[in-house]
Write a protein that binds this DNA or RNA. Structure first.
Ligand SMILES: [Mn+2]
Ligand SMILES: [Mn+2]
Ligand SMILES: [Zn+2]
Ligand SMILES: [Zn+2]
Lengths: 136, 136
DNA sequence: CTTTTACTGCAACTCGATTGCAAAGATTAC
DNA sequence: GTAATCTTTGCAATCGAGTTGCAGTAAAAG
């Protein structure tokens, strides 16, 4: 696993106190985090600073965002080598029982056959159901 | 194509003036509509009435909602026979140029292989890119 | 016809997201 | 080094999609 500093260096994002702590928090969580999740976890960092940090991270492909239908955008750290291209597409799973959203990096995404002349750029694929923990 | 009255009868939703006009509007549009889209199109119908109508429609599977990442939930009429089960899953396409979101009823959704012990209930699959009109 | 239930319109409100601005910090120019 | 410049941060205010309380109207039941 890379450190925060290494990731930011690779993605050419200047390292600051807020950025380090936000990225560290994201790396420490297995579920994708909302702005509020991060705000709650980092009690002394201002919401708008976290917000702008997330925008910077997203622009520079440090993280990607997930619209899981919960009303709050979630964020997850990109996998190593991710360029947020169609090739980096993966499903996200939203557990309707425990409200956990996370990347399914291990589930292959089948080729999407778009109609004639459509161009694929990105996708937001959220699969909903019960996670293994809740499906007992 | 079924009329509004037929659809509401099949889905066991009582027919009212607002419901008829909202459903008629949805049927007349090829792109999925946001609450604001509908509000703008139906100048004399109140937003909260439209909102509650959409909730009623969604609960009764007259329509389904799409989170396309634009910040506004979009709504589209369900296909005939749709029960909003995993079998009725389909991709949605969001054109990053013309901002049009619509159902790709004709693109087959491949089987989603979830990890061991996960249970699929629903999905929100939004593919983004250029539509045929904008990809020229 | 009267009572009960459902629907509608209006206004107020919630809450996640976003922005303006000034202070603090970092970088570059001299 | 210091001064000028650019970037980041914190705070407060604002935006806007979504949601709700409530009273009036319409429809259904008795
Ligand atoms: Mn992901
Ligand atoms: Mn659809
Ligand atoms: Zn779960
Ligand atoms: Zn288009």
């Amino acid at each position: 696993m890379q450190t925060e500093e290494e990731i930011l260096k690779i993605k050419k994002v200047k390292n600051t106190a807020v950025r380090t702590v936000v990225l560290r928090h994201l790396l420490s969580q297995e579920k994708a985090q909302s702005l509020k999740d991060i705000e709650n976890a980092l009690a002394y960092t201002d919401r708008s600073s976290i917000f702008r940090t997330l925008k910077t991270f997203e622009e520079n492909k440090v993280i990607h965002s997930i619209e899981d239908g919960s009303g709050m955008t979630k964020y997850a750290v990109c996998a190593k080598g991710c360029n947020c291209d169609p090739k980096d597409l993966h499903y996200h799973f939203y557990c309707t029982n425990c409200d956990k959203t996370f990347c399914l990096f291990d589930v292959p995404i089948p080729q999407i056959e778009l109609p004639q002349n459509f161009k694929l750029q990105q996708a937001n694929m959220v699969v909903k159901g019960l996670c293994d923990n809740c499906n007992k």
